[in-house]
């Protein structure tokens, strides 16, 4: 039998999916064991049990000085920056994408500009943002917006252009104005794509957020990681990394569920 025709049964599929996770855990545990055996004070690969203890401490115990639980404070600060930036980007890209996709006049006006804009490396603009917007929240949110909006805009404009011409003609023969075509034909069909775009760009958004927080911040998940790096606190860093990964995973899952619930027609053909 050819390899391309060989698919796993359900239990085997679950087992195969678990293999990489288990392998990484075992490799880490073994490496940590070896280093700790050589030097019990080693900080580079803390034992899994140490990480667990640190995690429990970080999630439940308050800061000695202020009494606040820093991890939750960091999470709140980072998530509000991230979601704020993503929400602004999504709204901007939706409006510009629809206008560029539907109106040839605006396509001529903006598509070249957006294409050039999306080539600017956003992180190179970070110093400018800090100079212009200061070190507060604004510059971090603006970095996320600048980082992901051009890509989302281009993709959404393309999606609008991908709507079959027949549908636009049909809507016109039913008497639809440009506004009605935008609101009732184009918008409902690009909204699922908008959510897919948000899911795709969340990774970049995290990257820009953590980069901005690493450079200048007083609170935030990225800030904390780079802060404790000075003390080689690998257990704290790893806890934060796992926590960020979990947050990203949950956000992605929530968006997927939203897409399924909100756009039942997408799956009607399946």
């Amino acid at each position: 039998m050819r390899l391309i025709n060989l698919s796993p049964s359900r239990p085997l599929a679950v087992f195969l999916a678990a293999v990489p996770f288990v392998a990484v855990l075992i490799a880490y545990a073994a490496g940590s064991e070896i280093r700790l055996a050589a030097n019990p004070a080693d900080k580079l690969l803390p034992a899994l049990s140490t990480i667990q203890e640190t995690a429990v401490r970080l999630f439940t115990e308050g800061d000695r000085r202020s009494g606040e639980i820093l991890l939750w404070k960091d999470t709140w600060a980072s998530l509000s920056r991230l979601l704020g930036g993503v929400a602004i980007s999504a709204s901007l890209s939706l409006v510009i994408g629809m206008v560029v996709g539907l109106l040839p006049m605006f396509r001529s006006l903006l598509s070249g500009f957006v294409a050039v804009l999306s080539m600017v490396p956003p992180l190179a603009l970070l110093p400018i943002l800090f100079i212009v917007f200061g070190l507060g929240e604004t510059s971090k949110v603006v970095l996320i917006v600048i980082g992901i909006t051009p890509f989302m805009t281009r993709d959404l404009a393309q999606r609008v252009l991908d709507i079959p011409h027949e549908q636009l003609v049909k809507a016109q023969t039913l008497g639809a104005s440009s506004w009605v075509i935008a609101a009732r034909v184009a918008l409902p069909q690009v909204l699922p794509r908008l959510i897919a775009n948000v899911r795709l760009t969340l990774g970049s958004a995290w990257l820009f957020l953590i980069a901005a927080e690493a450079v200048a911040a007083e609170v935030g998940l990225g800030y904390r990681i780079f802060l404790v790096r000075r003390y080689l606190a690998m257990d704290v860093i790893l806890t934060y990394v796992i926590w960020i990964t979990l947050l990203a995973f949950v956000l992605d899952w929530l968006l997927k569920q939203l897409s399924r619930k909100a756009f039942p027609w997408m799956e009607a053909g399946l």
Partner: peptide, 16 residues
């Protein structure tokens, strides 16, 4: 416009 109706081979109805 509304004066002239049309049916294409495909994509004539709104999928959403």
């Amino acid at each position: 416009g509304r004066e002239r109706g049309v049916v294409f081979q495909r994509y004539s109805v709104f999928p959403h």
